[in-house]
């Protein structure tokens, strides 16, 4: 939407916002070390969710013996496969490393035992362009995210789906817009 190329009609926009409005859904999970875990976010019964973009970040930790503890090694350990829970449609053909499609990507974790050594720890990545992901997730469905972790430390990730909520009840009652 280019705000400055069109005449803004407040009445029309208010009506439109009753049947669709911007919403963001967060999917956050911690994957056990050397394990696999299925996470999901519920679309709920409120209405369809028209996803447009996704952004995400994840930890890059590993265990070390010298020095003993956990270190942020900057290596991408997580791979994921996404599917639409309403019809089990696979949206990825394989487990894809998260760093290949997520921005900002890596974040520095406070669990890094060497975090105080700033000469060895790079800062977190910053947000660039979100990954376009245009898809209508139906009402009452789920976004399924199956993640594998091949680090020997449990790793946390977060993905934010940016989209438009389409409330069912409102759209049925307010068809003339």
């Amino acid at each position: 939407m280019n705000l400055f190329s069109n005449l803004i009609n407040p009445d029309r926009i208010m009506k439109l916002q009753n049947v669709q409005y911007s919403e963001k859904l967060l999917l956050s999970d911690t994957v056990p070390e050397s394990g696999q875990q299925l996470a999901k976010v519920n679309i709920s019964s409120l209405g369809h969710f028209y996803c447009q973009f996704m952004t995400g970040s994840f930890e890059t930790l590993a265990e070390t013996t010298d020095p003993p503890g956990i270190i942020d090694d900057g290596v991408s350990h997580l791979r994921a496969k996404m599917s639409d829970g309403s019809n089990q449609r696979q949206l990825f053909n394989d487990y894809i490393p998260l760093d290949l499609f997520l921005s900002p990507g890596r974040v520095v974790s406070r669990r890094d035992n060497n975090l105080t050594d700033l000469t060895k720890t790079a800062p977190s990545n910053s947000l660039f362009y979100p990954q376009p992901f245009v898809y209508l997730f139906p009402v009452n469905s789920e976004i399924l995210f199956d993640v594998k972790n091949d680090s020997d430390v449990e790793l946390k990730y977060e993905i934010l789906f940016h989209g438009i909520r389409l409330p069912i009840a409102s759209r049925d009652n307010l068809k003339k817009i």
Partner: peptide, 24 residues
Amino acid sequence: VFSAPSPAPFDAKGFNINFSANPV
């Protein structure tokens, strides 16, 4: 992106071919 001495960009575990997490 910081590449730690051990493991280096290629993780010694898993597939042995993990990459450092440069962002898109």
